[in-house]
Design a protein around this nucleic acid. Structure first.
Lengths: 208, 208
DNA sequence: GGCGTATTTAATAAGTATATTAAACAAGAT
DNA sequence: ATCTTGTTTAATATACTTATTAAATACGCC
């Protein structure tokens, strides 16, 4: 095997196993076995399991956050929301284990919460995005094009509906014994329903 | 200590630790230490860690499912939905770790999914509840009192919004450094917002 | 070919986890 | 007082975990 090729393979395999089984559920021996190399090699390249996991976790958090990029706002608020939510849904659809992976570790590990806090809260760029979205929303509310809502609530609503779709997907798949095609169909339906729900929440009532 | 009192104390302590740290994150030694007894005693009463966990997990699943009891339907559909969702929210508010506990284990452990499947899917009583709710909803849709929606989608929407509130609560608390009072306030707000969202999804548009 | 460096492995230390066993202990019955 | 039964502990077997170390291997370079 090409030198340093194993280093990459260890990282990829670790990522796959950690996503599947979490930190506690995956041993460096498991990783080595899956790679087909000696267990010491995992430590040679990454020194500790914690460091290996941490590298992967941070990268996944970044990936998760960075996807929340601001799309161009051309004045069509409903198109804007639709675009953002669909993009996020499609992104998570290609990374189905991501919501669980992130929540799992944050819920189980208080240290990790502290570690992540600064990245999330004190991220200048994210704050700016939040404030621009906030401004857009509050403007639309003033204009009367959408019903009053807190920006934070809207974001949490969207996150809840989208993320929970993928958090519960293993149950939906296994319990209802869906084929891969049926799963895709189910996800398409959910995406539509989520958009409907969010838009209903925003659309002002027609005055008679 | 009163004989057999320890048996109960082990169960309670195990429940607390499993809820906090999950199956993998809790050892029988941890449990014994927290109880203040010998580690062998845990095995004396429950034989294996798996059996101990399984007993607790099943009981929690039951608790989670059983709370979905049918409230009397007196024809006021919005009151009906409001009552159901609020009851569930309040229930989870007194069992904040429950959603994570359940999802965590179902996501990590395929065996557990199989184990649970029959309880959830082939539960006669739950099926009857599902069908009565389905009937009520489809009737209301025909009457035009609510917008068309799949029963399954409505349930998943409610579950997503309510459960995700508690799945993300540790992050909200830690990241935004909320005091217990502020957390309660936040939860009250979320409950209102969730009700608003769901009712908006259901209310038919006013025709001009 | 031989040297130096990076990669990989075997061996192992040190610790922890689950589970069992046998012995100690407690308390009521005879 | 001893026997019985249930409870609790100490000791331990077995296996597995993380991490380190020293030796083996591979590879480029002189």
């Amino acid at each position: 095997m090409n030198p340093t090729e194993l280093e990459k393979k260890i990282l990829d395999t670790a990522e796959r196993l950690f996503l599947e089984k979490g930190f506690n559920g995956t041993s460096t021996t498991d990783i080595a076995r899956a790679v087909g190399c000696n267990q010491a090699l995992v430590h040679y390249y990454y020194r500790t399991k914690e460091k290996l996991f941490s590298d992967i976790y941070m990268q996944k958090i970044e990936q998760f956050l960075n996807y929340a990029n601001l799309y161009k706002y051309d004045g069509d608020f409903y198109g804007f929301v639709n675009q953002m939510v669909c993009a996020y849904f499609d992104f998570l659809n290609t990374h189905r284990q991501l919501p669980f992976f992130i929540i799992n570790e944050l819920a189980l590990n208080k240290d990790r919460r502290c570690q992540i806090k600064d990245i999330v809260v004190q991220n200048q760029q994210k704050q700016e995005i939040y404030y621009s979205v906030d401004k857009i929303i509050q403007d639309e509310i003033k204009k009367g094009t959408i019903k009053p809502i807190e920006t934070f609530d809207l974001l949490i609503n969207c996150l809840s509906l989208v993320a929970m779709t993928f958090l519960t997907l293993p149950m939906v798949t296994d319990f209802l014994q869906k084929t891969p095609e049926q799963v895709d169909q189910y996800l398409e339906n959910r995406k539509k329903e989520i958009m409907t729900s969010i838009l209903c929440r925003l659309k002002p009532e027609q005055t008679i």
